Amino acid sequence: MSYKNFPMVPRVVFGRGSFNQLSEILDPKRLSINAPFIFLVDDVFKADGNLTSRIPLAYDDKIIYVSAKEEPKTDQVDSIVKDIILSTKERPSGIIGIGGGTLLDLAKAVSIMLTNEGEAKDYQGWDLVKNPAIYHVGIPTISGTGAEVSRTTVLTGPEKKLGINSDFTPFDQVVLDSELLQGVDKNQWFYTGMDCYIHCIESLNGTYLNAFSQSYGDIALSLCKEVFLKNNLSQIEADEKLMMASWHGGMSIAYSQVGVAHAMSYGLSYLLGTKHGIGNCIVFNHLEEFYPEGVKLFKQMKELHGIALPQGICANLTDADFDTMIDISLDLKPLWENALGKNWQKIITRSKLKALYKKM
């Protein structure tokens, strides 16, 4: 039997205020004064001098502000790569992503596409990337997606929503500074945190489960319960615990997979542009049949935090729309196999998927 030799993030800094060490982290990695660092930053920080003024720009370094209102797209990656190539004298020294899962995934994808020919859509799938990415750093400003630690960068392409899953995807360096989580919108905090919780439930209940995945998944799930079911944590404690839950949740799927909620939310995202975190929540809310205990706990958390999920988002869809979502969802074979086993196609039919989508 051949075992996967997965890469992990080789360097991580954890601690409040660790963002201030960015200059000393990056300086030794600068290739030349003509090889800039490119900072991809969520545009919500454009007016936030507190963060942007602390980005250590030198020489030809530049900030590219990117909106995270929509899920990251392959053509968006191509456009950023083209912009960087046309505006720099030499290949950049590195790409630094600052933001939530969208910005982190874009940073990973851009760093890959600067060294690989063609378009980002050509690399959607498993182990298609040929050349190592340029140096890239992830700095999350919201916790839950696990994008800071995963070997995938989830992108919506012209034909599918699918990650660039590769050994060259993980960051070379991650900075975990819980100070950067201040001021996150309550709903957004919940939806992104639930992405982590759902990772754990799907990993821990999957057929791919093994001791490696379980050890990380158990820790992440325990941390999620502390953050979302207790009210005696200070904001700093909650932020730091959720940051570590996200890290461990991302690690738990390195050697396993996610499941039904992620497979179905990819369909929503592709057709309706539903953001990943809220999409997972909308789907998971209806998955008692697959994850009875997990859904029960999810509903408790939702009630405790006063979260009202959008209703009826699939109410006016055509049969063709449902077919599109079902096609996207069923294409994610490893997710279904993890959730339901090798005979998953006998369990999850198109009509069953359609009935589930109709509830949303």
Rank of each mutant, 00 (worst) to 15 (best):
K73T: 04
A238G: 08
Y270R: 06
N5C: 10
S178C: 11
L309F: 14
Q345V: 15
S79H: 08
S93V: 07
V13A: 12
N34M: 14
T115C: 08
S79L: 13
R151K: 13
D60N: 13
M325A: 09
H248G: 01
P28C: 10
E288W: 09
L162T: 03
S18I: 14
N210D: 07
I201W: 00
F228V: 03
D48S: 09
L57Y: 05
V81M: 09
T74K: 00
T318Q: 10
F39E: 06
D42T: 04
G97N: 10
G250K: 10
M8V: 11
D323A: 14
V77Y: 02
Y255L: 08
T152V: 13
F284P: 00
L271M: 12
Y266S: 08
V137D: 00
I142Y: 06
I282Y: 03
D75H: 12
R91P: 00
I307D: 05
Q182Y: 06
N187C: 05
V149R: 04
P7S: 11
N343A: 14
R30L: 13
A355P: 01
T145Y: 06
S23H: 11
V174F: 02
L204W: 04
D323F: 07
I96D: 02
M325D: 04
A107Q: 03
N116D: 07
M1D: 03
A355S: 12
A355Y: 01
K46G: 00
P140W: 04
S23K: 15
Y291H: 02
A315Q: 14
F228A: 06
P36N: 07
G49F: 12
L242S: 03
E117N: 10
T141M: 10
P36A: 11
F6N: 12
C200A: 11
N116R: 11
V13K: 13
E337A: 13
A47V: 06
P334Y: 08
K73D: 00
V258Y: 00
N210F: 06
S178M: 02
S93H: 02
T169C: 13
Y59Q: 02
G49N: 11
H199W: 13
